[in-house]
Amino acid sequence: MKIKSGYLMREVAGENIVIAVGEAAKNFKGMIRLNPTGAFLWRLLEEGTDEAAMLAAMLDTYETDEETAKRDIAAFVNAIKGAGLIDE
């Protein structure tokens, strides 16, 4: 599971935003704003991390329980998948 090429996250004036470049910009005209946790998960997905490794990284970085972390990761991955930004 990896973020498709052509989608970049940039920190713009204190906000993490995802924009499309090149060919991807022809189909994706908008912008996605990520909160700090979303930006953290996005970086992992850029490296092609799977959900189990994302869970481990999240539990390692944030003070949260496994159940909440799993739910948040699933919600994030579904949202990104829904926007068509992931290569399975």
Partner: peptide, 13 residues
Amino acid sequence: VPGILRNGTDYLD
């Protein structure tokens, strides 16, 4: 406008 994405990719503050 706090900045631009130069060439669409690199943020210039």
